[in-house]
């Protein structure tokens, strides 16, 4: 693969082994023009440090907030973002696309 997404997965492993709580966010579905391809990863640790991306920076803040909850309770979540979303004024994709993101804890 021509990407460094797998370096992100390696970092997720390293962070977890170092004893940090870690969440893995993955783009699982896109509609229209989406900034990052399906399969792109963002990882987040319990201190909100992050690596990788699931959009061009549009929704990362919101994903990080949700990821901290996932790290706390261990329940995977599916998040959806797009201009049609009611949260569009706060977070959304200026490109007009829509994306679905799966967030899970690294156990």
């Amino acid at each position: 693969m021509l990407s460094t997404d797998t370096d992100v997965l390696k970092a997720a492993e390293d962070w977890r082994r170092a004893g940090k709580g870690v969440a893995l966010a993955t783009v699982i579905e896109t509609w229209g023009s989406a900034p990052r391809a399906i399969g792109s990863h963002l990882i987040i640790d319990e201190d909100a440090n992050f690596l990788g991306s699931v959009s061009g920076g549009c929704v990362e803040g919101s994903v990080i907030t949700e990821a901290l909850d996932v790290i706390a309770d261990g329940r995977p979540r599916v998040l959806e973002f797009g201009v049609a979303d009611e949260t569009a004024w706060r977070v959304g994709l200026s490109c007009g696309g829509r994306i679905k993101i799966y967030v899970e804890r690294v156990e």
């Binding site: 997965l9 893995l24 690294v106 156990e107």
Partner: peptide, 14 residues
């Protein structure tokens, strides 16, 4: 995802 599975995925890639 279990750490063991993530580790295996990274191992397969390596």
């Amino acid at each position: 995802m279990k750490l063991e599975m993530l580790s295996r995925l990274n191992g397969e890639r390596a």
